[in-house]
Design a protein around this nucleic acid. Structure first.
Lengths: 240, 240
DNA sequence: TAAAAGCCTTGATTCAGATCAATTCATAGG
DNA sequence: CCTATGAATTGATCTGAATCAAGGCTTTTA
């Protein structure tokens, strides 16, 4: 977290958090959750457009998203920017920073958000005594790797429309897990950010949206997306 | 590891292994290394072209590469294949399998190789008592994530020649770490496998090689690559 | 040692997506 | 509330990489 302590903090509380089955505490018993609660002592609010942290800052903590939506991106020296991920509630930010002890990417809130700070050294210390916690943490890291391999597949071998279809299906699945509609949601990111993530220019993203709409598979109204035909959307992926 | 036990096994020995500073034991003291040795009790040889494991097999162990070279790839249902990584000595295979408890990718030896089996449950157990080991393992996983983000950047925003240049520089760096020449090496993979990894067709890879050669930056003779002008090769990356 | 199979290179052509450009639409700020 | 700024759409054109095709080289194996 930035030194700038204008960012408000309040107590976190895993035991009563509705996200606990999506988040770090998965599988812990009552007693263990109380221990974890001591570790995750601070929540902090990040306004839309603000940085949780910038690349280069020294790594201390992971952040679990309690509310809101983030993007992470890396910046090449020549100015090119690549969005490396979009993160929603219950997901962990900062896993890439463990290796270098420095955050490797800029992390920006795409809507008003709130994160729980997880001091990493303490997490490691605690996980020595809570094998379930350790194991689940390993699964979370491994899942990140699997996710990235999926994106590599997408970037390496899919065409524009396929990429967008895969992207929408991925968002949909994650919304469902959180109790939201599978077929009706608001995009938090711009066409340009989607394009960066999918390896496309924003005009191409826009055209791909329009084409899916013309085929009556989805409808798009600016940031509002409705999926009308989930099966045909699915068949767009991996059929080319 | 496959049940098929024709694959020969011999005792491993981290304490005397020349790769130990690249591999899992990094930072451990003499006593701790001896403990780790008990855990990593089996080595096993894999001939060129053979699978270490296939996607779908139940996950039990990570594998540290003692000798040789591997590729990992995932297969889409429509038959498309994507190479997700190339791995050399001292690197860990199987990190992606922790999340699903099933190997997610096919892992194939690209030359005669030897791996050390690391039973994962035992590694977790042991790392409870050896904080250095736990921390280093976390760094290794995190490094994998950072590496994947780099590949996403490459796939998302670089052009063919840039991608190949970045790829060669990456190989070069890894060879140096292992005591080999930075500028002179043998590729273990085909043009098609390079292409799959870089999101290009093999003809494009071949042309990119030829162009770098025409510019006297490298010379290529089939699988043998010599880098003549490291600076110009570097300037190919991130200058477009 | 020859034949076969796979791998690599290079040329010609095509095409998906990038780029350039013009408008419209939405949101934020004065 | 209106204006300004950024976001999105859509069209026209261009281009880098894919595709199609042919031939040479290497490695394997019979």
């Amino acid at each position: 977290m930035r030194k700038n302590s204008l960012i408000p903090r309040v107590n976190a509380n895993c035991a009563t958090c509705s996200l606990r089955e999506l988040c770090l505490p998965l599988g812990l018993n009552e007693h263990e959750i109380i221990l974890l609660d001591k570790l995750v002592s601070h929540k902090c609010k990040i306004q839309r457009g603000e940085f949780l942290h910038r690349a280069g800052l020294r790594f201390q903590s992971l952040y679990a998203i309690r509310r809101g939506f983030f993007k992470t991106c890396i910046l090449e020296k020549d100015g090119r920017q690549q969005v490396t991920g979009f993160y929603m509630t219950g997901e962990l930010l900062g896993l890439d920073a463990i290796s270098t002890e420095t955050y490797n990417c800029d992390t920006v809130a795409l809507e008003d958000s709130e994160v729980c700070e997880v001091p990493f050294a303490k997490l490691e210390e605690m996980s020595r005594n809570i094998p379930t916690l350790m194991h689940h943490f390993h699964k979370i890291m491994s899942r990140e790797i699997v996710k990235d391999h999926g994106v590599m597949m997408l970037l390496g071998s899919m065409r524009a429309e396929e990429r967008l279809a895969a992207f929408l299906l991925n968002l949909s699945r994650r919304f469902v897990k959180r109790g939201y509609s599978a077929s009706d949601f608001i995009l938090r990111m711009t066409r340009e950010e989607i394009g960066s993530y999918l390896g496309l220019k924003f005009e191409t993203v826009s055209r791909a949206f329009s084409r899916l709409q013309d085929e009556n598979i989805i409808s798009v109204n600016n940031k509002h997306v409705s999926i009308h035909d989930m099966d045909r959307l699915r068949s767009k992926v991996g059929n080319s």
